[in-house]
Nucleic acid binder design. Structure first.
Ligand code: SF4
Ligand code: SF4
Lengths: 154, 154
DNA sequence: CCTAATTAGTACTGATTCGGTCTTCAATGC
DNA sequence: GCATTGAAGACCGAATCAGTACTAATTAGG
């Protein structure tokens, strides 16, 4: 596992689709569903959430649809995952809101997990839709090693 | 989400416990359960799998138990996750054995996801039990950016 | 040998989450 | 007003998770 949900996965596919057109252009759910070959109800559901979470803006009524809320290089993969499945937390204890592991007080690996989580989160935070639109060019940025991520509360 | 299962999480806790004693020492399930404060049945189940997957060796009978199959710096976090929850695959399509996403043929983000997955896998592959045993010292290794990971099949 | 300790294997269960659909209501343009 | 489109949320079957329980095999020690 260590799997991202289909919701988030599809969400990224959809958002990339937006990013591959003129940025302000609106698309309705039906057309998008056809373009990316996903069932319409699924697409509707995802777009709804993305709009609610502020990554898309919606336009109701005839000839309505959705458009990107920000430029494609201002939206990251992490943003989309967060919108669709909540905070990025690899372990229970790294989730500030829902976290409730009994071992937290005594767990020997908690602080290290926390850093690993930060490294992954930061990596996803750096990948924008504009980049996701086409295969990554080689050698852009160097990421942080989990072992060197600073933590501030333990 | 993007969560590792409790099984794997606890598995790592248990393995670090092994690593914090003399390496060849054997520990039985009951003692370990008490030490890490986890329910015995859970601990038994996990140790069993870890032994089956070759990360621990088991010794049956009275005064039996488990011991590390290799030195603590030869066992990685990725090993443990793989043993307990299968191949590390962030998306459906990155899982070579169980992967079956309908979009694979047409998905615009598949190759990028693949690289992100490699980056995460490689990161976890580099963290050993010996390191996990205590808080990471800062600045050891630099990880690969997902955008620069080479892929060999698309 | 007998027995107690210990792992091996597996089956089971309740709870949760996932993936996906459907229905009903609200807004908008023509 | 009416067709189109999104908003909100209920709903459902299937899968997975987290955890337990039970039985069989193996071994040490007396
Ligand atoms: S406290 Fe330890 S066991 Fe509990 S979630 Fe965090 S890492 Fe896993
Ligand atoms: S193919 Fe595209 S949609 Fe399907 S799992 Fe891979 S990334 Fe996600």
């Amino acid at each position: 596992m260590l799997r991202v949900t289909k919701l988030a996965d599809y969400g990224i596919v959809l958002m990339t689709q937006f990013a591959s057109y003129r940025e302000s252009q609106t698309h309705n759910a039906r057309d998008l569903a056809a373009e990316v070959r996903l069932p319409l109800p699924m697409v509707s559901k995802i777009l709804k959430v993305l709009a609610r979470e502020g990554l898309l803006v919606s336009h109701r009524g005839t000839r309505g649809g959705y458009s990107l809320a920000r430029a494609a290089d201002g939206i990251t993969v992490a943003d989309i995952i967060r919108a669709l499945e909540g905070p990025i937390a690899v372990t229970e204890c790294t989730d500030k809101v829902n976290g409730d592991c009994d071992l937290e007080r005594v767990c020997p690996v908690r602080s290290n997990w926390h850093r690993i989580n930060e490294a992954i989160r930061e990596a996803l935070e750096k990948i924008t839709l504009a980049e996701m639109r086409r295969p990554f060019p080689p050698g852009l940025v160097k990421l942080t090693d989990p072992r060197s991520v600073r933590t501030f509360h333990a």
